[in-house]
Design a protein around this nucleic acid. Structure first.
Lengths: 160, 160
DNA sequence: AAGATTGTACAGAATAAACTGTACAAAAAA
DNA sequence: TTTTTTGTACAGTTTATTCTGTACAATCTT
């Protein structure tokens, strides 16, 4: 009874910690998995995770892959162990922040490219006759939106 | 045919702009509504929005309410007009950033409170006999997580 | 006052996301 | 080689989210 308290409290911590992690655009399961891994400290196999979180192995495979791609988790090699072992990276703040900021920068640039494309379309049409005031207005607005994206980009770049 | 091009290009801009806005945790519809409103410049009624986006009036009511709560949109009064008129706020960057940053700060603090609560639980149990090394370990980990939240908090506070 | 109009609550329908179980390819063990 | 084990692809199911239509209270018009 008393010894269960350790597990109970640990679970509560996992739950709360996971809520925070979700804010970095991780799914609930990914977040919980990371939180659990973080408190476990040692490297775990897919089966152990599946067991611990009560979710299917497929789910674990997908979730751990996501975490791995985000660089939140590391694949660990251990002599004599055949299964893949994954371990959470430490340095929470730096880890999540750089991942998050990079995500913003990538997305922002992608959007900037798309808008640049539209700017070209727009300037082609503009040279044709008719409706020129409407085109002017639209050009001005697109500039404003572009400016917004530029600010976003440099804002997140300065964070790094 | 040519005159439709204005609408076509405008729609493409709305679509791309909306994608960016979604990154600030708005739903696709909320994002598209804001983008449309932004390009419209003038204030619009629920019916006009419903018409323009091809979505139900209920959806518009809900979405505009969200935008309003986030301070992204303003209720405008116009003489002789009975319906509610909503207009997008300008100053895109400042607008979205402050909303976003405040959201992070609020969430982070909420999480900090929850963790503090857990810290208290934990220290109560610790004084009882048995399993003290496990409690120590857990305490240490909770401290780390708390530290992470403090860093998050001050990080976003410095942005304002 | 009655009649009409406007915004939203609510319940259900449509759509999207998360999750599972089976099946199988790749790699290790026998 | 054959047999076993491990991770993942895929299709389908479950769960959650988004969206719609009806109904109605509040407000305006007559």
């Amino acid at each position: 009874m008393l010894e269960n308290n350790v597990e109970q409290v640990r679970n509560k911590i996992v739950t709360e910690f996971a809520k925070t992690i979700e804010m970095f655009d991780l799914t609930p399961l990914e977040a919980r998995l990371f939180a659990y891994l973080y408190l476990s400290e040692k490297a775990l196999t897919l089966d152990e995770m599946s067991d611990a979180l009560g979710k299917s192995k497929t789910s674990m495979s997908n979730s751990i892959r996501s975490l791995y791609d985000m660089n939140l988790v590391t694949l660990v090699w251990k002599k004599g162990v055949r299964k893949d072992l994954y371990q959470s990276n430490s340095q929470l703040f730096k880890l999540f922040m750089t991942t998050y900021i990079n995500k913003w920068i990538d997305a922002t640039n992608h959007q900037k490219d798309a808008l640049t494309e539209l700017e070209h379309n727009l300037s082609e049409y503009r040279n044709k006759p008719g409706k020129n005031d409407e085109w002017d207005k639209l050009t001005k607005q697109l500039d404003d939106i572009m400016e917004f994206h530029k600010k976003l980009d440099s804002f997140f770049r300065e964070m790094k």
